[in-house]
């Protein structure tokens, strides 16, 4: 090929690896901005409904399990740490460590979803559900179903992001195993890391807003 001197990870339209890495980083930050705005819309909805029905939010939030929420917060923060460590390991060309840290991140993400599953399951059984599916009678407030609409939409969208994150982490894991990365080129892991930190960050906001009202 005409660009025989280029390393194989360098795409033809970039002049050098630095330009490619910087473009990827910028693109990723812009993408993360759109993610923040996507959740931002939901946070605004949350703020509006909470300001309209402060008492209802307070009463309804009591049915959420703070221990499980705390556990999940802990799990997710740890997974952010293992994600960061996997990048660090790749910077040091320690491929084996990267693989193990990525596996750990995946397991922690799965743990998060399993815990979330139990929380959801419990609410389904009790009928603590959004909108017209709401059948629970233990909350002494007007329109408590709104709280669960907000709760399920926000945690649901976040859960989907965790799931997507797991898929992407699996993908970089496979590529790491296939020896695609080195300390020269590990942009995909780095980008995945950025995304994963955002998912973590959003949860850090969701947790107090939903579980720790009042």
């Amino acid at each position: 090929m005409e660009h025989a001197e280029h390393p194989k990870f360098l795409q033809h339209h970039f002049t050098d690896a630095e330009q490619q890495a910087e473009s990827a980083k910028l693109g990723m930050w812009i993408f993360l901005l759109t993610e923040i705005l996507l959740f931002g819309g939901l946070f605004v909805f949350y703020a509006i409904f909470r300001s309209w029905h402060p008492d209802m939010f307070y009463e309804a939030h009591k049915v959420l399990s703070v221990p499980l929420g705390t556990l999940n917060t802990f799990v997710l923060i740890t997974s952010s740490l293992t994600m960061a460590l996997s990048i660090r390991a790749m910077q040091l060309n320690n491929r084996k460590q990267t693989i193990w840290y990525l596996v750990a991140t995946l397991l922690l993400a799965a743990t998060f979803l399993v815990v979330k599953y139990f929380e959801y399951h419990h609410k389904f059984e009790l009928g603590q559900l959004p909108g017209r599916f709401y059948t629970y009678e233990g909350i002494n407030a007007v329109n408590p179903h709104i709280f669960f609409s907000v709760y399920f939409t926000m945690t649901g969208l976040h859960g989907i992001h965790v799931l997507i994150g797991m898929i992407v982490i699996t993908w970089v894991l496979v590529r790491t195993i296939k020896n695609d990365f080195s300390s020269e080129y590990y942009t995909p892991i780095e980008m995945t890391g950025l995304y994963w930190h955002l998912v973590d960050l959003i949860w850090i906001f969701l947790f107090p807003l939903l579980y720790l009202i009042g």
Partner: peptide, 8 residues
């Protein structure tokens, strides 16, 4: 809202 009637 339309599919599940979440009510907001």
């Amino acid at each position: 809202e339309k599919a599940f009637g979440i009510g907001i």
